[in-house]
Design a binder for these strands. Structure first.
Length: 458
RNA sequence: GGCGCGUUCGUCUAGUGGCCUAGGACAUCACGUUCUCAACGUGAAUAUCAGGGGUUCGAAUCCCCUACGCGCUACCA
């Protein structure tokens, strides 16, 4: 049984990188008739954002990446929210303590800082010096009795070569002496990612293929050791590359757009974004750039993901989005636009008018995002120069003289004015729409009607 | 500093020892169409396959070194 998951932490609003992960998880589960589930990792109480969880699910729904099991849907491995699973982690931490795979650590923050700065001075790896690793049972009992705060740390074996396997990159070796005895249980009683997510929950929830960001690769040896201590079978690990800014750093708000909400506000289509994301580190066997989700599901495989961090190219995404818009049925496009402009009565009025379809047909190839629709159909008042005013006047008079209002007659007028006034076509657009370019004048003027146009040219 | 991962046109990529004098897509430029802008069509330019050593009759493809980029180096995930 294939079981994949995303495990977002509600410390911020939905990130495009989370969707990128979810896409591969979701598609792979679909492909294998498996389950894609969502677990909420809310163990970092300090950074918790109240409505973040709700927003994550809303984003998943918007993209159509629905999950089989989650806090909102329930499932056989409930609960799916880590803050509700505390006893479970405590139980396993205790088990590990008994097995000798972990130990109590009573070191103060101050002591840890001293150790780190001393190590830094000597240019050594900064890591816990295992000070509490060999405390005797009595010493531990004594300190516990005294009520000294503690954390539980993982006991990494010494002097061994830890060989882990990432399904995308192959075997990777780590010197165990360079792996820190990491904290498993914090002093507040909450577990860290290493204990809770990577190991206990993914084992208990039967994750078969674990897809996560490359930033976790460095801690894979810790998870490996943990699985071995518990004697559990490991999932297959796939570390996906991180999405990057144009300067190659990790995709950030400063340089790129990380929030899903930004893409929604700009009028990108979820299916186009998914298509873009899919072809970033995976490529269609026939070299296609545009392919459906179904096609992706049937052709993709997690091991075909490339380990190279791609730069997020908003220009190519825009092109793809434009292609999707062009390929849409008018009716579907109209619905999308209505939803997008639900709060904009001016645009809504046009979308609900009789001329809607004719206008959409003209607009279709001229917008890369839904947001660009508005300037194609809603004119603005632009400051006109004396020359432009004169052109507007002539244009108006000639249009007024048309008796049979149709695009051919309008086109004739357009040609005449351009010739007589020796102007470029763009000036005519400016005097009628406020923009230097827009929907073809003959067709759009015919659709809008003589009255409306004459009034606009006043 | 240490450890790990990575490196093919500006960008996303194809490529797994001979089909590669490296293919496609976006972007760029030109031409066609034309009432503007797009769309569409045609074409052009852009990569000594990070650099250097090997292995081989033959390497973008295998090995080693170096450089560079990125990630990790928290009682965050």
């Amino acid at each position: 049984m294939v079981r994949t998951r995303i495990a977002p932490s509600p410390t911020g609003y939905p990130h495009i990188g989370t969707i990128y992960q979810a896409l591969f998880d979701w598609a792979f589960a679909k492909k294998n008739n498996g389950i894609f589930f969502v677990r909420i990792e809310d163990t970092d109480r300090a950074r918790l954002v109240e409505d973040a969880e709700e927003k994550i699910f809303a984003a998943l729904d918007w993209f159509g990446l629905g999950e089989g099991e989650s806090p909102r849907k329930g499932g056989p491995y409930e609960p799916y929210r880590q803050s509700e699973r505390l006893e479970i982690y405590q139980k396993y931490a205790k088990e590990l303590l008994e097995k000798g795979g972990a130990y109590y650590c009573f070191c103060s923050k101050e002591r840890l800082e001293e150790v780190h700065s001393a190590q830094e001075k000597e240019h050594k790896a900064t890591m816990y010096d295992k000070h509490c690793r060999n405390l005797s049972k009595d010493e531990v009992q004594q300190k516990l009795k005294e009520g000294i705060g503690y954390v539980i740390r993982l006991k990494i074996p010494e002097n061994t070569d830890i060989v882990v396997k990432d399904e995308i990159r192959g075997e990777i070796h780590f010197d165990s002496n360079l792996i820190e005895d990491t904290v498993l249980m914090k002093s507040d009683g909450y577990p860290t990612y290493h204990l809770a997510s990577a190991v206990v929950d993914d084992h208990l929830m039967q994750t078969s293929h674990l897809v996560r960001g490359e930033e976790w690769l460095s801690s894979l040896p810790k998870h490996w050791v943990l699985y071995d201590y518990f004697g559990w079978e490991k999932p297959l690990f796939f570390h996906t590359p991180v999405l990057r800014n144009p300067d190659k750093s990790k995709l950030s708000k400063r340089q790129g757009h990380t929030n899903v909400s930004w893409y929604q506000e700009e009028g990108f289509l979820p299916e186009a974004i998914l298509n873009y994301l899919a072809q970033l580190s995976w490529s269609h066997p026939e070299g296609k750039d545009i392919f459906s989700l179904d096609e992706f599901i049937s052709l993709m495989d997690l091991k075909d993901i490339k380990p190279v961090g791609p730069i997020f190219d908003i220009v190519k995404l825009s092109w793809l989005n434009g292609q999707y818009i062009q390929a849409m049925e008018l009716k579907a496009l109209s619905e999308k636009l209505k939803a997008f402009y639900h709060a904009d009565s001016e645009v809504l009025k046009i979308l609900e008018s009789k001329q809607n379809n004719a206008l959409l047909e003209l607009a279709k190839t001229r917008m890369k995002t839904l947001k660009e629709f508005k300037e194609l159909v809603i004119p603005i008042k632009a400051e006109l120069s004396p020359e432009e005013k004169e052109v507007a006047n002539v244009f108006r008079q000639k249009l007024e003289a048309i008796t049979d209002w149709n695009k051919d007659a309008i086109l004739n007028v357009v040609r005449e004015v351009i010739k007589e006034k020796k102007i470029k076509g763009s000036m005519l657009y400016k005097v009628t729409t406020g923009y230097e370019h827009g929907l073809p004048l003959p067709e759009s003027l015919e659709i809008l009607g003589k009255e409306a146009i004459l009034e606009r040219l006043q």
